[in-house]
């Protein structure tokens, strides 16, 4: 998995590509740990993300809990397959997802 981060003031854009699975999820979690301070808006760009497992979902969920206290979190451009997983697991009811 590749992680691309761009901080623009209090807005952090995180672009993910490849697989967010049991091996790569802890890497993402570590990457975000230090970078979320003072962030008011966190945007995940899932355009190139091809696969997500429960470990990945749990990292997104725990990140959202942090962001709820300090701002907002949006998931952008999930592909059809990732949306299928979000729908099947009920993730769509919990997160703000921008499909456009």
């Amino acid at each position: 998995m590749k992680i691309n981060k761009r901080l623009n003031g209090s807005e952090l854009l995180v672009e993910l590509s490849g697989r967010l699975d049991t091996n790569s999820s802890p890497i993402l979690e570590n990457e975000l740990k230090d970078d979320l301070n003072n962030v008011k808006l966190l945007i995940f760009d899932f355009k190139e993300l091809m696969y997500i497992s429960s470990t990945g979902l749990r990292v997104i969920l725990s990140t959202q809990k942090i962001m709820t206290k300090q701002g907002d979190m949006v998931i952008k451009n999930p592909n059809e397959l990732i949306m299928e997983v979000f729908d099947a697991t009920g993730f769509t009811d919990i997160l703000i997802i921008d499909k456009t």
């Binding site: 497992s53 429960s54 749990r58 969920l61 997983v85 697991t89 993730f91």
Partner: peptide, 13 residues
């Protein structure tokens, strides 16, 4: 069970 743990997600898919 933890929310979105392995088995909960497995059951959903």
């Amino acid at each position: 069970v933890q929310k979105f743990d392995n088995i909960t997600v497995l059951k959903k898919i």
